[in-house]
Amino acid sequence: MLLVLGQVDPEAPPGGAFTPVSAAVSAGFPSPAQDHYRGPIDLNERYILDKTSTFVLNVAGDSMIGAGIYDGDQIIVDRSIRPDYGDVVVAIVDGELTLKTLARSDGGPILKAENPRFRSIPLEGEQELVIWGVVTWNMHPHRP
């Protein structure tokens, strides 16, 4: 794919006395939309609630397919959210950032894999230290 970002003309003549005129002072009919335009929609505004605590991580592996999260996806993780049962979380298991669902079982809270081929992990003791952050969005590409 070729994307032209701009061109440089080495033979360009000197600029001369050219005064650019901005839209605000231009004569003629102003755009009726001008007063209502607040800029384009901003993805950050919707997908990042708190920029101090939001991180993007890559996903590696198939254990969360049942939750719609696939190998190679990118997830948005917000560390400020207190994890609740049913949240997909990034947990620290054996020193690694691990993706699981925080779920309740008979024996107490567990980190549940969303794929029957993978095991779930019972949680003991200090849960808060184990949860690195809560997944708020998953970015799954629909083109390679």
């Binding site: 991580l57 890559n58 996903v59 592996g61 254990s63 993780v77 950032l97 691990t98 993706l99 993978f118």
Partner: peptide
């Protein structure tokens, strides 16, 4: 946190 190519990985294993 500053390069798309160097994001940390969450392991779904």
């Amino acid at each position: 946190t500053t390069h798309w190519g160097e994001l940390a990985t969450a392991h779904a294993a």
